[in-house]
Protein backbone atom coordinates (compact mmCIF):
# COMPACT_ATOMS: atom_id res chain seq x y z
CA UNK A 1 0.00 0.00 0.00
CA UNK A 2 2.77 2.40 0.93
CA UNK A 3 4.63 1.60 -2.24
CA UNK A 4 1.45 2.16 -4.24
CA UNK A 5 0.76 5.55 -2.65
CA UNK A 6 4.37 6.67 -2.91
CA UNK A 7 4.40 5.71 -6.60
CA UNK A 8 1.11 7.49 -7.16
CA UNK A 9 2.47 10.60 -5.48
CA UNK A 10 5.75 10.61 -7.43
CA UNK A 11 3.96 9.87 -10.69
CA UNK A 12 1.57 12.76 -10.21
CA UNK A 13 4.39 15.11 -9.22
CA UNK A 14 6.52 14.41 -12.27
CA UNK A 15 3.37 14.08 -14.37
CA UNK A 16 2.38 17.63 -13.48
CA UNK A 17 5.77 18.78 -14.79
CA UNK A 18 5.23 16.87 -18.03
CA UNK A 19 1.85 18.55 -18.22
CA UNK A 20 3.40 22.02 -17.94
CA UNK A 21 5.81 21.28 -20.79
CA UNK A 22 3.11 19.53 -22.83
CA UNK A 23 0.98 22.68 -22.66
CA UNK A 24 3.64 24.53 -24.64
CA UNK A 25 3.80 21.84 -27.32
CA UNK A 26 0.07 21.65 -27.63
CA UNK A 27 -0.60 25.41 -27.72
CA UNK A 28 1.95 25.97 -30.47
CA UNK A 29 0.59 23.00 -32.40
CA UNK A 30 -2.95 24.29 -31.92
CA UNK A 31 -2.07 27.61 -33.50
CA UNK A 32 0.68 26.90 -36.04
CA UNK A 33 0.10 23.17 -36.67
CA UNK A 34 3.69 22.09 -36.22
CA UNK A 35 5.66 20.44 -33.44
CA UNK A 36 8.06 22.91 -31.91
CA UNK A 37 10.93 20.50 -31.29
CA UNK A 38 12.95 23.30 -29.73
CA UNK A 39 10.47 23.32 -26.84
CA UNK A 40 12.32 20.59 -24.92
CA UNK A 41 15.46 22.73 -25.15
CA UNK A 42 13.60 25.71 -23.74
CA UNK A 43 12.67 23.45 -20.82
CA UNK A 44 16.37 22.53 -20.40
CA UNK A 45 17.18 26.23 -20.61
CA UNK A 46 14.76 26.74 -17.73
CA UNK A 47 16.95 24.50 -15.57
CA UNK A 48 20.06 26.37 -16.66
CA UNK A 49 18.43 29.70 -15.97
CA UNK A 50 17.57 28.48 -12.48
CA UNK A 51 21.26 27.69 -11.94
CA UNK A 52 22.47 30.97 -13.45
CA UNK A 53 20.06 33.28 -11.61
CA UNK A 54 20.57 31.49 -8.27
CA UNK A 55 24.31 31.86 -8.61
CA UNK A 56 23.99 35.50 -9.61
CA UNK A 57 21.79 36.22 -6.58
CA UNK A 58 24.01 34.08 -4.34
CA UNK A 59 21.15 31.75 -3.45
CA UNK A 60 21.30 28.09 -2.53
CA UNK A 61 25.07 27.88 -2.90
CA UNK A 62 27.06 25.49 -0.66
CA UNK A 63 27.42 27.05 2.77
CA UNK A 64 24.89 29.83 2.13
CA UNK A 65 22.00 30.54 4.46
CA UNK A 66 18.65 28.87 3.64
CA UNK A 67 16.82 30.67 0.85
CA UNK A 68 13.63 32.48 1.89
CA UNK A 69 10.64 31.28 -0.14
CA UNK A 70 10.18 34.64 -1.90
CA UNK A 71 13.74 34.57 -3.20
CA UNK A 72 13.04 31.11 -4.59
CA UNK A 73 9.93 32.53 -6.23
CA UNK A 74 12.06 35.37 -7.63
CA UNK A 75 14.39 32.85 -9.28
CA UNK A 76 11.33 31.10 -10.73
CA UNK A 77 10.02 34.39 -12.15
CA UNK A 78 13.45 35.33 -13.56
CA UNK A 79 13.87 31.91 -15.18
CA UNK A 80 10.38 32.17 -16.67
CA UNK A 81 11.05 35.69 -17.96
CA UNK A 82 14.38 34.69 -19.54
CA UNK A 83 12.87 31.69 -21.29
CA UNK A 84 9.85 33.72 -22.35
CA UNK A 85 12.19 36.17 -24.03
CA UNK A 86 14.08 33.34 -25.74
CA UNK A 87 10.77 31.86 -26.91
CA UNK A 88 9.76 35.23 -28.34
CA UNK A 89 13.04 35.60 -30.22
CA UNK A 90 12.88 32.01 -31.55
CA UNK A 91 9.42 32.61 -32.99
CA UNK A 92 10.26 35.98 -34.53
CA UNK A 93 13.60 34.94 -36.02
CA UNK A 94 13.05 31.31 -36.98
CA UNK A 95 9.33 30.67 -37.46
CA UNK A 96 7.69 33.94 -38.43
CA UNK A 97 9.50 34.22 -41.79
CA UNK A 98 8.11 30.75 -42.61
CA UNK A 99 4.47 31.58 -41.92
CA UNK A 100 3.32 30.72 -45.42
CA UNK A 101 5.90 27.98 -46.04
CA UNK A 102 4.92 24.28 -46.00
CA UNK A 103 4.69 22.84 -42.51
CA UNK A 104 7.53 20.42 -43.17
CA UNK A 105 9.91 23.36 -43.62
CA UNK A 106 8.89 24.74 -40.26
CA UNK A 107 9.29 21.33 -38.63
CA UNK A 108 12.83 20.98 -39.98
CA UNK A 109 13.58 24.52 -38.83
CA UNK A 110 12.38 23.56 -35.35
CA UNK A 111 14.87 20.68 -35.28
CA UNK A 112 17.54 23.14 -36.41
CA UNK A 113 16.64 25.57 -33.62
CA UNK A 114 16.79 22.69 -31.15
CA UNK A 115 20.32 21.74 -32.28
CA UNK A 116 21.37 25.38 -32.24
CA UNK A 117 20.19 25.83 -28.65
CA UNK A 118 21.86 22.62 -27.46
CA UNK A 119 25.19 23.43 -29.03
CA UNK A 120 25.16 27.09 -28.09
CA UNK A 121 24.50 26.08 -24.49
CA UNK A 122 27.63 23.93 -24.46
CA UNK A 123 29.90 26.75 -25.58
CA UNK A 124 32.48 27.66 -22.95
CA UNK A 125 31.24 31.23 -22.53
CA UNK A 126 27.58 30.20 -22.28
CA UNK A 127 26.93 27.31 -19.86
CA UNK A 128 29.93 25.16 -20.74
CA UNK A 129 30.13 21.47 -21.56
CA UNK A 130 30.20 20.19 -17.95
CA UNK A 131 27.38 19.33 -15.57
CA UNK A 132 26.72 21.89 -12.87
CA UNK A 133 25.19 21.32 -9.45
CA UNK A 134 21.66 22.53 -8.96
CA UNK A 135 21.25 25.09 -6.15
CA UNK A 136 19.28 24.12 -3.13
CA UNK A 137 16.52 26.70 -3.01
CA UNK A 138 13.94 24.69 -1.09
CA UNK A 139 14.46 22.80 2.12
CA UNK A 140 14.68 19.13 1.17
CA UNK A 141 14.05 17.53 4.54
CA UNK A 142 10.85 15.62 5.02
CA UNK A 143 7.89 17.84 5.83
CA UNK A 144 5.56 15.10 6.96
CA UNK A 145 4.83 11.51 6.29
CA UNK A 146 1.33 10.31 5.57
CA UNK A 147 0.48 6.61 5.36
CA UNK A 148 4.13 5.97 4.70
CA UNK A 149 4.37 8.51 1.88
CA UNK A 150 7.21 10.92 2.46
CA UNK A 151 6.34 14.49 1.54
CA UNK A 152 9.06 17.10 1.28
CA UNK A 153 8.68 20.87 1.02
CA UNK A 154 10.02 20.62 -2.53
CA UNK A 155 7.21 18.21 -3.47
CA UNK A 156 4.59 20.55 -2.07
CA UNK A 157 6.14 23.47 -3.95
CA UNK A 158 6.30 21.47 -7.19
CA UNK A 159 2.71 20.25 -7.07
CA UNK A 160 1.36 23.55 -5.73
CA UNK A 161 3.11 25.69 -8.34
CA UNK A 162 2.31 23.32 -11.19
CA UNK A 163 -1.35 23.19 -10.19
CA UNK A 164 -1.52 26.98 -9.82
CA UNK A 165 0.02 27.47 -13.27
CA UNK A 166 -2.36 24.97 -14.87
CA UNK A 167 -5.37 26.67 -13.29
CA UNK A 168 -4.02 30.02 -14.47
CA UNK A 169 -3.70 28.62 -18.01
CA UNK A 170 -7.23 27.28 -17.89
CA UNK A 171 -8.42 30.75 -16.89
CA UNK A 172 -6.27 32.48 -19.50
CA UNK A 173 -7.45 30.30 -22.37
CA UNK A 174 -11.10 29.87 -21.48
CA UNK A 175 -11.81 32.94 -19.36
CA UNK A 176 -10.13 35.92 -21.00
CA UNK A 177 -10.49 37.89 -24.21
CA UNK A 178 -6.91 37.08 -25.17
CA UNK A 179 -7.63 33.39 -24.60
CA UNK A 180 -10.66 33.63 -26.88
CA UNK A 181 -8.37 35.20 -29.50
CA UNK A 182 -5.92 32.31 -29.09
CA UNK A 183 -8.68 29.78 -29.61
CA UNK A 184 -9.97 31.73 -32.62
CA UNK A 185 -6.50 31.85 -34.20
CA UNK A 186 -6.12 28.15 -33.48
CA UNK A 187 -9.42 27.38 -35.19
CA UNK A 188 -8.91 29.56 -38.27
CA UNK A 189 -6.16 32.14 -38.59
CA UNK A 190 -7.69 33.99 -41.52
CA UNK A 191 -11.11 34.39 -39.95
CA UNK A 192 -9.52 35.38 -36.65
CA UNK A 193 -7.77 38.28 -38.38
CA UNK A 194 -11.17 39.36 -39.75
CA UNK A 195 -12.28 39.82 -36.13
CA UNK A 196 -9.58 42.46 -35.69
CA UNK A 197 -7.26 40.04 -33.90
CA UNK A 198 -3.58 40.78 -34.41
CA UNK A 199 -2.59 37.23 -35.30
CA UNK A 200 1.18 37.80 -35.10
CA UNK A 201 0.80 39.20 -31.61
CA UNK A 202 -1.28 36.22 -30.49
CA UNK A 203 1.31 33.81 -31.91
CA UNK A 204 4.15 35.64 -30.14
CA UNK A 205 2.17 35.60 -26.92
CA UNK A 206 1.57 31.86 -27.27
CA UNK A 207 5.29 31.20 -27.65
CA UNK A 208 6.14 33.40 -24.68
CA UNK A 209 3.56 31.71 -22.43
CA UNK A 210 4.56 28.21 -23.60
CA UNK A 211 8.24 28.96 -22.99
CA UNK A 212 7.48 30.37 -19.55
CA UNK A 213 5.60 27.22 -18.60
CA UNK A 214 8.54 25.12 -19.82
CA UNK A 215 10.88 27.27 -17.74
CA UNK A 216 8.66 26.81 -14.69
CA UNK A 217 8.75 23.06 -15.26
CA UNK A 218 12.55 23.28 -15.50
CA UNK A 219 12.75 25.20 -12.24
CA UNK A 220 10.42 22.80 -10.47
CA UNK A 221 12.22 19.76 -11.82
CA UNK A 222 15.47 21.18 -10.50
CA UNK A 223 13.85 21.72 -7.11
CA UNK A 224 12.58 18.17 -6.98
CA UNK A 225 16.02 16.76 -7.70
CA UNK A 226 18.19 19.54 -6.27
CA UNK A 227 21.67 18.80 -5.08
CA UNK A 228 22.31 16.29 -7.82
CA UNK A 229 24.74 17.16 -10.54
CA UNK A 230 22.79 17.05 -13.74
CA UNK A 231 24.01 16.29 -17.19
CA UNK A 232 24.36 19.02 -19.74
CA UNK A 233 21.38 20.09 -21.72
CA UNK A 234 21.59 17.60 -24.54
CA UNK A 235 20.79 14.23 -23.02
CA UNK A 236 18.59 13.79 -20.02
CA UNK A 237 16.63 17.01 -20.03
CA UNK A 238 15.86 16.77 -23.69
CA UNK A 239 14.53 13.28 -22.99
CA UNK A 240 12.21 14.75 -20.36
CA UNK A 241 11.03 17.28 -22.93
CA UNK A 242 10.37 14.49 -25.41
CA UNK A 243 8.31 12.61 -22.84
CA UNK A 244 6.26 15.76 -22.43
CA UNK A 245 5.78 15.72 -26.20
CA UNK A 246 4.47 12.17 -25.87
CA UNK A 247 2.14 13.46 -23.15
CA UNK A 248 0.80 16.12 -25.53
CA UNK A 249 0.17 13.50 -28.23
CA UNK A 250 -1.42 11.04 -25.80
CA UNK A 251 -3.74 13.75 -24.48
CA UNK A 252 -4.63 14.89 -27.98
CA UNK A 253 -2.26 17.36 -29.59
CA UNK A 254 -3.77 20.82 -29.82
CA UNK A 255 -6.04 20.19 -26.84
CA UNK A 256 -5.10 22.14 -23.71
CA UNK A 257 -6.97 19.94 -21.23
CA UNK A 258 -5.64 16.90 -23.06
CA UNK A 259 -2.07 18.07 -22.40
CA UNK A 260 -2.70 18.12 -18.66
CA UNK A 261 -4.35 14.69 -18.66
CA UNK A 262 -1.63 13.30 -20.94
CA UNK A 263 1.10 14.67 -18.67
CA UNK A 264 -0.34 13.11 -15.54
CA UNK A 265 -0.99 9.84 -17.38
CA UNK A 266 2.58 9.62 -18.67
CA UNK A 267 3.98 10.44 -15.22
CA UNK A 268 1.88 7.69 -13.63
CA UNK A 269 2.71 5.12 -16.29
CA UNK A 270 6.41 5.84 -16.00
CA UNK A 271 6.50 5.60 -12.21
CA UNK A 272 4.24 2.58 -11.90
CA UNK A 273 6.32 0.87 -14.57
CA UNK A 274 9.51 1.63 -12.72
CA UNK A 275 8.08 0.68 -9.36
CA UNK A 276 6.22 -2.52 -10.24
CA UNK A 277 7.91 -3.83 -13.38
CA UNK A 278 11.49 -2.79 -13.86
CA UNK A 279 13.38 0.45 -13.65
CA UNK A 280 15.45 -0.50 -16.69
CA UNK A 281 12.64 0.36 -19.06
CA UNK A 282 11.71 3.77 -17.63
CA UNK A 283 11.71 5.50 -21.02
CA UNK A 284 10.40 2.46 -22.87
CA UNK A 285 7.05 2.51 -21.00
CA UNK A 286 6.42 6.05 -22.14
CA UNK A 287 7.25 5.42 -25.76
CA UNK A 288 5.34 2.13 -25.75
CA UNK A 289 2.28 4.15 -24.73
CA UNK A 290 2.98 6.53 -27.59
CA UNK A 291 3.01 3.62 -30.04
CA UNK A 292 -0.19 2.19 -28.56
CA UNK A 293 -1.98 5.53 -28.73
CA UNK A 294 -0.84 6.13 -32.29
CA UNK A 295 -2.09 2.68 -33.27
CA UNK A 296 -5.37 2.62 -31.39
CA UNK A 297 -6.44 6.22 -30.92
CA UNK A 298 -4.18 8.50 -32.96
CA UNK A 299 -6.23 11.59 -32.11
CA UNK A 300 -5.33 11.14 -28.43
CA UNK A 301 -7.50 10.86 -25.35
CA UNK A 302 -9.30 14.19 -25.79
CA UNK A 303 -8.39 15.00 -29.40
CA UNK A 304 -10.85 15.05 -32.27
CA UNK A 305 -10.20 12.87 -35.26
CA UNK A 306 -9.49 14.90 -38.38
CA UNK A 307 -9.09 13.70 -41.90
CA UNK A 308 -5.81 14.76 -43.44
CA UNK A 309 -6.38 15.91 -47.00
CA UNK A 310 -3.78 14.63 -49.41
Amino acid sequence: MTQFLQTLFDGLTVGSLYALIALGYTMVYGILKFINFAHSDVFALGVWMTIVWSKWLGLGQPGAAPTPWYMGALVLVLAMASCGLVGFVIERVAYKPLRSAPRLNVLITAIGVSLLLQNTGQLKFVFGPYPKPIPSLIDSTELFSMMGVSVRMADVAVIGTAAALMIAMQWLIFGTKLGAAMRAVSFNTRNASLMGINVDLVISFTFVVGSMLAAAAGFLYAMKYEGQAKQTADSMWVMLGLKAFVAAVVGGIGNVRGAVIGGLLIGLIEFFGVSYLSSHYRDAYVFAILILVLLLRPEGVLGKATVEKV
Binding site: A180, A181, R183, A184, F187, M195, I197
Partner: peptide
Protein backbone atom coordinates in the same frame (compact mmCIF):
# COMPACT_ATOMS: atom_id res chain seq x y z
CA UNK B 1 -15.66 29.50 -34.80
CA UNK B 2 -17.34 26.14 -34.48
CA UNK B 3 -15.47 25.22 -31.29
CA UNK B 4 -16.87 28.24 -29.44
CA UNK B 5 -20.31 29.23 -28.24
CA UNK B 6 -22.54 31.63 -30.15
CA UNK B 7 -21.97 34.13 -27.36
CA UNK B 8 -18.18 33.89 -27.67
CA UNK B 9 -18.41 34.26 -31.44
CA UNK B 10 -20.35 37.49 -30.96
CA UNK B 11 -17.78 38.77 -28.45
CA UNK B 12 -14.99 38.07 -30.93
CA UNK B 13 -16.84 40.27 -33.41
CA UNK B 14 -16.29 43.16 -31.00
CA UNK B 15 -12.68 42.12 -30.30
CA UNK B 16 -11.12 45.35 -31.53
Amino acid sequence: FANMSVDENLSLGAYA
